[in-house]
Nucleic acid binder design. Structure first.
Length: 948
RNA sequence: GCCCAGAUGGUGGAAUUGGUAGACACGAGGGACUUAAAAUCCCUUGGCCAGUGAUGGCCGUACGGGUUCGAUUCCCGUUCCGGGCACCA
């Protein structure tokens, strides 16, 4: 019987739907296992062969776990809000909801062909009100919370208000935008609006006037992870810094927990390292410097942050960030003109300019600071190399031991004082944190300090200085993080609307029971003429606080009807807690019910690309920790194990056109001509041989092309590149399924190499996987008859089977699918040559292959007489006894060189083997005249005889 | 500049974590069946050398050292490729 994959796959796709094979419900009697793929953004281009790679890998794992008796949750959905649909809408007027729906349908069709075990009854789409209800709800909870540093947890804002009423800001240790200080009386005296303004300083979701990455071409702000090398990640447009009022999430409050959590989860080291870099913890000290203006000592002071407190004696100047509030305060009248000119220059420069040309620039403020350790005065400069957003926006410059300070000092001719024994700072600074400190004043020489750092190592000196700073009240020990708060507003249409209206200029949350606040219709998707976001075009976009519903904008009276927020939420909003929603996707009372949450807990295995390392995977961990603090999520980390599937690259093909002609020359002859390589569609190339007729038909200008062939063929060149339309190297999985079947595609994608590794797609090798499935199929058939007998299996057959069980089980556990497929091939070849057609062997084989090739497994399972799905079978148990041999072939080596193998009884102990070796029984001719120094026995493998 | 992960045949990649390097597959070459093609099956396939031959020898896991009876695997140094962070004080 021929292996007719088309009929088989179609039949089982229908059956699975009819039988609801993949529907899961909470079942207290079984252990849960939660497998999750990063849900896709449904782009207009559809799936290419790279997309399903991770889905196949996780599907194999999900099916395997199910066969092991776990209750497996394996859901799928769509990250449906996004820029491409909106840009398409701007160009064509087509509503993004329609484009998105079309794309989703296309994705679904393509996914269904590959035979995944997704429970589609749990599908979520981030753009549906039933889903974004809970995105808005979480945002409101963040608005209503602050972060308590003492208890390391989010708390209701009411607790903070109580604190203010009792003792003002005294004894307050919370996450905040800036440090405020007021008494309980002052708090009570504040107006409502003032109170709200104060509270905004502490909320986890807050409206903040911050420097943002503004992308004029996209007309929106971008988060830090959406900006790469000073241009937007999408589209590559320039990004400038701009001060704007935006919604922000206080992700920075969770920096330490985000860092600590990494120790508890099973992710790759490189991904954890990426997140550690992004969080960027650094331990240092904040030290206050008093200001001396025009030589007159003033009461003004400012604080700097340093990780090198030991270098206090090497400070020769101070530097402020141009955006710092201190600039205005510390600029003297004489310097004002020069400073203003400099600030204007800095303002002109984009993020990109700063990165690409690192000129040394700066201006003197006119003021001086007093070093609290020495009493010396140092000039205060202003320079763009100091960043406003990190530390305090001000530094003490130690040119001898910091390369940036060094460059600045050289450029402006400022003094350089080395502090480390034997270091040479004539050409460059000495930045290393190792060596012995020198040049610090002896104890008692200055009136300011009573100890010397000389002779200490740098590490000791840092510790000693910090201790002193703390004791003397000169400053405090401080940990800083590079991680910034996430900017949460986007000036876009196609995203979640904020459930917020404005009263007296202050944001108010619409009542929780009125959620979801649905995205309004607009007549155009561009910003308004006055530059407001696209929601400004909505006619019906105001909130009536009496009736609690959305009303027409013309009704705004600022008494009962108020304007609604015009920004929408960014892409990461919807993807931050979707794994919780899958647990209970249709619940309209809660994000997830207690019962479902208690059962499914968290994701056991998460599969997706590493490009989300500093975006989604940080935001999602933050979001989950917040929900954890609220008692919604059971586990502090949402994704226990994470596997990053490698990108599948394209394998592009090239033809070589002789310049100024329409003649194409084959690869190995091209060096004889002056040629231009051109991309050619890989779908008309097979094994690097060009289909000439298809090529002529491909483009009208090639219809009359001429060819210079080798051996009668046109051989194309090739290169590995990103898979993309413009390179003509996109391979569509539908085509592969059509030609070879889904099982072959699944097997081949896994066989290509380790899941985690990036690798080029090469359709050529797929024959091998297809041939294997045919061989596997043929084991069950004798010509046209299904021929499986109930005979007792032989020892040899059982050995082949159990070797396979062992290998496949071990491989799946560690995601090494690419090595278990050869094991299947070897076992199939062995059993075929043994002419084995016994049920006791073949039935477990079907179960073993079911995760990899579910369609063929179902068909054979049914033919074997079962009336349930193979998904409900039991994973075969491996038994060691079938692999135990009577004899063991031991390799005999002399001084490490292997000579030959010799059989020993399997139960021979080491002493017997060694005696045989020493007794010259094994190898007389090699041992003649030589002295045995030692005999090393590697169990069941080798006897190594060391001779002299 | 700092951090992380890599480098194995013509190609994708194996190697039980220190024990016969190159499994398995593709590609290539040869053969069988066939009028022919497709399909299928069999043999060869890291390099060099010796032999009619079975076979034997030497070299070989980016490069140079080291530890070990034995190193693709562990350690030190170098080169190259990929990824992350980057005026972060």
């Amino acid at each position: 019987m021929e292996y007719n994959f088309r009929d088989i796959e179609q039949k089982w796709h229908q059956r699975w739907v009819a039988m609801q094979t993949y529907k899961v419900t909470e079942d207290e009697t079984r252990k849960k296992f939660y497998v999750l793929n990063m849900f896709p953004y449904p782009s207009g281009a559809g799936l290419h062969v790279g997309h399903p790679l991770g889905y196949i890998a996780s599907d194999i794992y999900a099916r395997y776990k199910r066969l092991q008796g776990f209750n497996v949750l394996n859901p799928m959905g769509y990250d449906a809000y996004g820029l491409p649909a909106e840009q398409y809408a701007i160009q064509t007027g087509q509503h993004p909801a329609i484009t998105t729906e079309d794309n989703i349908n296309r994705y679904r069709e393509q996914l269904d062909k590959i035979g995944f075990s997704f429970d589609w009854s749990r599908e979520v789409r981030t753009c549906e009100p039933g889903y974004y209800h809970w995105t808005q709800w979480a945002f409101q909870k963040m608005f209503g919370s602050f972060y308590c540093n003492k208890c390391q947890s989010a708390q209701p804002i009411e607790e903070l208000i109580k604190h203010f009423e009792k003792e003002g800001t005294a004894d307050l240790d919370v996450a905040q935008s800036e440090e405020l200080s007021f008494t309980a009386e002052a708090w009570k005296a504040m107006s409502d609006v003032e109170k709200q303004q104060v509270l905004m300083n502490y909320r986890i979701a807050y409206l903040g006037e911050t420097m943002v990455n503004w992308c004029p071409q996209l007309g929106t702000v971008l988060a830090n992870d959406e900006v790469v090398d000073g241009v937007s990640e999408r589209g590559g447009y320039p990004v400038v810094q701009k001060k704007m009022k935006q919604w922000c999430l206080r992700v920075s409050a969770y920096a330490q927990r985000l860092l600590d959590g990494l120790e508890t989860i099973d992710w790759t080291e490189s991904l954890k390292e990426t997140q550690r870099n992004w969080i960027g913890r650094s331990e240092g000290a904040e030290i206050a410097f008093k200001v001396k203006s025009d030589g007159v000592k003033s009461e003004k002071s400012f604080t700097i942050f340093t990780t090198r407190a030991d270098t206090m004696f090497g400070v020769t100047f101070m530097v402020l960030a141009p955006e710092s509030e201190l600039v205005k305060e510390l600029t003297t009248p004489e310097q004002k003109a020069a400073v203003d000119e400099y600030l204007a220059y800095v303002k002109k420069r984009t993020e990109r300019d700063r990165i690409s040309d690192r000129k040394v620039t700066g201006v003197f403020s006119g003021s001086y600071a007093i070093n609290p350790f020495t009493g010396e005065t140092n000039p205060i400069w202003i320079s763009e190399y100091v960043l406003a957003g990190y530390g305090t926006g001000a530094i003490m410059a130690v040119p001898a031991h910091d390369s940036r300070d060094y460059a600045f000092a050289k450029h402006f001719n400022l003094p350089i004082v080395p502090l480390v024994e034997g270091c040479d700072v004539s050409e460059e600074s000495f930045d290393a944190k190792e060596g012995i400190v020198c040049n610090s004043p002896k104890a008692g020489v200055t009136p300011y300090i009573d100890f010397s750092l000389n002779g200490l190592t740098i590490k000791e000196a840092i510790a000693a200085t910090k201790k002193y700073v703390k004791e003397q009240g000169l400053g405090r020990v401080k940990v800083n993080y590079r991680l910034r708060d996430a900017i949460f507003s986007r000036q876009r249409y196609w995203g979640e609307p904020f459930p917020v209206y404005y009263k007296d200029g202050m944001p108010q949350m619409i009542p929780e029971e009125c959620l979801p606040l649905e995205l309004p219709e607009v007549d155009k998707f561009l910003p308004t003429e006055t530059g407001e976001p696209p929601l400004g075009n909505a006619k019906k976009w105001a909130w009536n606080t009496k009736t609690n519903n959305v009303v027409d904008c013309s009704a705004i009276d600022h008494e009962t009807v108020f304007p609604l927020e015009l920004n929408t939420m960014p892409g990461f909003a919807g993807s931050s807690a979707y794994y919780l929603r899958y647990m209970d996707p249709h619940n309209d009372q809660a994000l997830v019910s207690d019962k479902a949450d208690e059962y499914w807990q968290n994701v056991d295995l998460y599969v997706g690309g590493s490009e989300h390392a500093t975006g989604h995977l940080i935001y999602s961990r933050f979001w989950n920790k917040f929900l954890f603090d609220l008692g919604i999520s059971r586990k502090e980390e949402p994704f226990q194990k994470l596997v990053n599937q490698g990108m599948i690259q394209g394998r592009s093909n090239f033809v070589y056109r002789i310049k100024d002609t329409n003649t194409f020359v084959s690869l190995n002859l091209k060096d004889q001509y002056d040629v231009t390589p051109l991309h050619v569609d890989v779908n008309i190339v097979s094994g690097d041989v060009l289909d000439i007729e298809a090529f002529k038909a491909w483009r009208p200008e090639y219809a009359s092309a001429e060819f210079i062939l080798e051996d009668g063929k046109y051989i194309c060149g090739w290169a590995v590149e990103k898979m993309s339309k413009s390179m003509f190297n996109v391979v569509n999985p539908d085509m592969i399924v059509e030609k070879f079947g889904a099982d072959t595609l699944r097997l081949y994608e896994m066989f290509l190499g380790p899941v985690e590794q990036a690798k080029p797609w090469d359709t050529n090798g797929i024959d091998g996987s297809h041939r294997f499935l045919k061989k596997f199929w043929n084991m069950f058939w004798n010509k046209e008859d299904f021929a499986v007998t109930d005979e007792e299996p032989t020892k040899e057959e059982l050995k082949a089977l159990h070797k396979l069980i062992k290998k496949v089980t071990e491989d799946i556990e560690v995601f090494s699918y690419n090595t278990s497929i050869p094991a299947f091939m070897i076992a199939t070849n062995e059993l075929t040559s043994l002419k084995c057609n016994k049920r006791a062997i073949l039935e477990p084989m079907v179960v073993l292959i079911a995760p990899f090739a579910p369609h063929i497994a179902e068909e054979l399972w049914e033919k074997l007489g079962h009336n349930t799905s193979v998904c409900d079978a039991q994973w075969p148990k491996f038994e060691e006894k079938y692999l135990v041999e009577d004899t063991v072939k031991m390799m005999v080596a002399f001084n490490g060189k292997t000579r030959f193998g010799i059989d020993f009884p399997a139960d021979a102990d080491n002493a017997t083997i060694e005696a045989a070796a020493r007794g010259h029984e094994l190898t007389p001719k090699y041992l003649e005249g030589k002295q045995i120094v030692k005999v090393i026995i590697v169990p069941k493998r080798m006897i190594n005889i060391v001779v002299k």
